[in-house]
């Protein structure tokens, strides 16, 4: 079993980690580095609880080998807030009551952040489609969709003020 030494950036900080070939990014984050905000709901690419940003794009971290992330930049849910100030998607999902058990929430927030990055004015249909890989058993999704739309609007007004 070959170990690989990889260097990557996680939430803005460099990490050097020794990982066996078969270790997924999700395993590395949770078990090696204790970024436990990212969740394991299926380990099969289906539920989206493990979603993180890889070089700015959302991925299922259970469907990527850690070794494939050499040199990459990862953002997990722990990296969304800056200096204690919540990301607009985090604040909006609280305000709209889009969190219940909270297990899907980290993945939902990452998908939402990525969506707004690539499409600053998503329609409700576009939001729903972007969330199709984030299963939520509690909320029924409506409040999550509302929250993301609101977050996009808030971000825009924030940007306008700057």
């Amino acid at each position: 079993m070959a170990n690989h030494r990889i260097t990557l950036k996680i939430n803005g900080e460099y990490e050097q980690v020794d990982v066996p070939s078969q270790m997924t990014l999700l395993q590395m984050l949770r078990d090696k580095l204790a970024f436990t905000g990212t969740k394991n709901g299926c380990n099969a690419g289906e539920c989206g609880a493990c979603t993180v940003l890889l070089n700015g794009e959302p991925v299922n971290s259970c469907m990527i080998l850690a070794v494939e992330c050499q040199g990459a930049e990862i953002v997990t849910v722990e990296g969304l807030a800056q200096d204690g100030v919540l990301d607009p998607v985090q604040q909006a999902i609280i305000d709209h009551g889009g969190v219940q058990c909270g297990f899907c929430t980290p993945g939902v927030l990452i998908s939402a952040r990525a969506l707004i990055n690539r499409n600053p004015h998503p329609t409700p249909d576009e939001i729903s489609e972007a969330l199709v890989g984030n299963l939520c058993r509690c909320t029924g999704y409506l409040r999550i969709v509302d929250a993301i739309q609101d977050a996009a609007a808030r971000q825009e007004s924030l940007a306008a003020r700057l």
């Binding site: 905000g37 849910v77 807030a81 919540l86 985090q90 609280i94 009551g97 909270g102 929430t105």
Partner: peptide, 12 residues
């Protein structure tokens, strides 16, 4: 607001 919301959205 839910008392558990903040810790759930920051991943803690």
């Amino acid at each position: 607001r839910r008392v558990d919301a903040r810790e759930k959205v920051v991943g803690s």
